[in-house]
Every structure is written in C-alpha cells, then in structure tokens.
Design a protein around this nucleic acid. Structure first.
Lengths: 114, 114
DNA sequence: CAGTATCCCGGATGATACTG
DNA sequence: CAGTATCATCCGGGATACTG
C-alpha cells in the first residue's frame, strides 16, 4: 500500500501554487530588499492597485510567507516583512533577476547591432 | 539626458512578464524534462484545459521560449521543445523544485510530530 | 495612512461542437 | 491527433466612495 506521505506531490507545482503569479513574485522581490509599509510597497510595484495588493498580501500572510505589523498610531502605520519561509524563497527571485539581466543585455546587443 | 538604453527596466519584472504565471511555469517544467507532444503535455499538467494549453504554448512560442514542430502526417503529430532561451530558464525551475522539496519535507515533519 | 465596501465590466476560462 | 470556433460564464480587477 501507499502511505499518504508517499503520494506523488510535485514540488514545482507546490511552489507555483504558493508564489506562481505575477504580483506575488513582484511583492516578494520588493520585500526581499527590506521591510516596507503598505503605500511604499504600492508605489514600488508598477501597475498594482490597492485592492490587488491587499488581496495578495493577505494570501501571502495566510501562507506564512510574510508577517504583518500593524501599529496603533495616528496616522496608522502597517509594515510588511518576509518571514523565514519567505526569505527562503530568495534564490528563486535571484535566479529570475539574473536571467532578466542576461535577457535584457541580449536585447540591447541586438538593438545596437541594427 | 537619459538614453533609451538607460531607462530603468527591472530584470525581475521582465522575467515575470515572460513566465510569471502558473501555467507557463508548469509547461516550462515539463519541457525541461524532454520534448513532448501536445496531448502528452496536456496529460502531464494536472488541470490544464486544451484551450489554455494552446494559448500558453502560442504565447511562449511567440516569445521565443519554445519551438513548435508540426509533422504533416495522419494522424497529425506536433511536438514542442524548448529553445535555447527556454532552456536557459532551467535554474529558475530548478530553484522552485528545491524549494518545494524542502517545503514538503517540513510539512511532512510537522505531520509526523503530531 | 491603510485599509474596507460596492458596483461593475471585460477578459480569461470552461464546455461543447466541429475539422484538417 | 491537435487543434479552431463559438457561446456562456465567472470572477479578477478597476473605479469610486467611505472609515478606523
């Protein structure tokens, strides 16, 4: 018999399920740089709306990827910081960064060769 | 003045724009293993519909990530293979795989500790 | 400031049928 | 087999207004 823990679970599908979307990857990228406030995060991600940012932050918080710190001040201040789990995703974003750099260089070279 | 090539372009956003979606990442994963036929690919990706698979394959082909080989046979045979550019994305999927393995192990350990 | 609450639209997706 | 075509649907996401 096959035990539950031996069920075929795809690691890549697991990862993709947690952070395999445009906005989560970009939020992750920003928070890997530093802990950030809500609007700071919003401004740093081109094209994201308040609603979508909130939705993704809630989901990532529920998945244990980041931690939300709300301060009872006036005006309110809320900061987001990656958890240990979130930080462990750094190599993925890092590879995406490296690949993007290479890709953009190739594009630039092609333009210069025109 | 700022030249066009000096415009601030984010490498991670570039990468995310090309493959930052659930299905593209999973298609990429499958094709990194081997060249595959359409239905073979379809069966290997849980939950993907024919339409969505076609759409994503077309987009990835247009982006130069994969190559489509259509053979004029009866019945028709179409195979998909990663381009050199597509293959250069391997480290990203590789990191996602490693992370997923670790994550699943952690989950399993937590269950056993119950 | 950092949200929540509504309304609403369009594109993404599923289902189905058809075809080279 | 590997699609394309069409229709119906649904909900992701924008716009706006309001609030602790």
């Amino acid at each position: 018999m096959i035990a539950k823990k031996d069920l075929p679970v795809c690691p890549v599908a697991t990862t993709v399920g947690l952070i395999g979307s445009k906005w989560k990857l970009l939020i992750l990228q920003q928070l890997l740089k530093e802990r950030k406030r809500f609007n700071e995060l919003r401004r740093s991600i081109d094209g994201i709306s308040q609603k979508v940012l909130t939705q993704n932050l809630r989901a990532m918080e529920a998945d244990g990827i980041l931690v939300r710190y709300a301060y009872a001040e006036v005006p309110p201040r809320v900061e987001y910081e990656l958890s240990e789990l979130g930080n462990s995703l750094r190599p993925i974003i890092s590879e995406m960064d490296s690949w993007g750099v290479e890709y953009l260089n190739t594009l630039k070279d092609m333009q210069e060769a025109e």
